[in-house]
Design a protein around this nucleic acid. Structure first.
Lengths: 235, 235
DNA sequence: CAGTGGTCTAGACCACCTA
DNA sequence: AGGTGGTCTAGACCACTGG
């Protein structure tokens, strides 16, 4: 574990334990330098991390302050590491509908930089949040990278398995969102009616080395879908 | 203009001029250090900026590579600076429906940290993209901060005016999204039918010093709403 | 004008990738 | 093994905030 990561974790823990609120002032840089016995840049880096994560904001000439968003029960759109990490409070579970090795669709091949004769794992599952249908997910995994999947893995956290089981490092992802009306088939899966709203999110996930390994299309149940997103001006 | 910002701009310009594609390799750090005559950390900072912006990705032991997303015509969800900056290709215009000073609703007061007897500007407008209705927007601006607005400003870019006209610095924002079905009134504004899908996005915008100055609720036309979002694993 | 965060440097050393 | 990005340091100097 790197110093600046460790320090970021400890500062965040401190904020939680002290139950600090939006706008509360944290100790000054000098204090953290002395307390953790590191140089200024290291502390700066830790705080940058927390700033991007939406935990603090820094005001030059004034201080470092706690940032909090007020609403609970929203799913964070950042975090390209699957849901499991985000929603400690909520129960997320999955019911696999299909799991097979096949050739990719044209679209999947394009998004994964594959030829149409290479293998992918195709996974279709329904995901539940607190017992309600959250979404229907179809994913294509490049089999050359994600070499093995089974029903058990697919019922749990696929991304967890990819990280821990396969030792792969997940890097960045591109998400595309649009809305439309549910068709018959989707409506049945989600327990809704044809014509009701849906949100479709397509995502291409890449490893840290830039290789795309997963293309997924997720159709969300509009009744359970509340998302939040914290942004920075990011000079 | 800071060095690392300037350098980031130049590197990005270089990528565009050379029409580099996803996966193309950029020169090594050493090269940039020599070329711009700055220290390693400065270049690193520039590249971090570009990485967060989704322009490049860096692979330790390997190099710096161009990152591109493949689809056009999507609205970026990051950028809390209004649309104007994002969509160079698209024509965005606004038709004001209401503009007045009033007392905030309970909800607006809560989100802006105001008492219910303090003044806000209330703005309601329809926004168009390439001649089609994009969304209906209702905003509450803290009048103590955004001291003046008129019909002309509200027809153009409010955020542009806040930055340049008022000299305020926009910091971070919290967005909350959810879906539902259009009611009668919204449907009329958007030229759609009651019961069709809608996406509602509520956002609280803050200055760099942490003060909230704008609370807005935007209802999007599902036919024009395509969003994208690039994320990083963000160590 | 004192306090506080931000930028920038030069250099040492480390971790990872490719071959 | 050689190349490449990442971390960390110590210190100088700058820019903004607020009494």
């Amino acid at each position: 574990m790197l110093k600046y990561q460790q320090i970021a974790i400890e500062i965040e823990k401190y904020i939680e334990e002290q139950e600090l609120q939006q706008g509360d002032k944290l100790p000054v840089l000098e204090h953290f330098m002395a307390h953790f016995k590191v140089s200024k840049s290291t502390i700066t880096k830790s705080l940058e991390l927390l700033e991007r994560k939406g935990v603090v904001y820094q005001v030059r000439g004034s201080g470092i302050f706690v940032r909090r968003h007020k609403r609970k029960g929203y799913i964070s759109l950042l975090s390209n590491q699957g849901f499991k990490r985000e929603l400690e409070d909520a129960q997320i579970s999955s019911k696999p509908l299909q799991l097979e090795v096949r050739k990719p669709s044209k679209e999947a091949a394009l998004n994964l930089n594959l030829h149409e004769d290479e293998d992918v794992y195709y996974v279709k599952r329904i995901r539940y949040i607190n017992g309600e249908t959250l979404c229907v997910e179809e994913s294509y995994y490049n089999k050359a990278i994600v070499t093995y999947l089974n029903k058990e893995i697919v019922s749990e956290s696929i991304f967890g398995y990819i990280r821990e089981g396969l030792g792969l490092k997940i890097g960045f992802s591109d998400m595309y969102m649009q809305m439309d009306q549910l068709d018959e088939n989707e409506a049945v899966h989600l327990g809704l009616k044809k014509g009701e709203p849906k949100l479709t999110v397509e995502t291409v996930f890449h490893l840290t080395n830039g290789q795309p390994f997963d293309f997924s299309r997720v159709v969300y149940n509009y009744k359970q879908s509340r998302f939040f997103l914290q942004t920075n001006s990011d000079t």
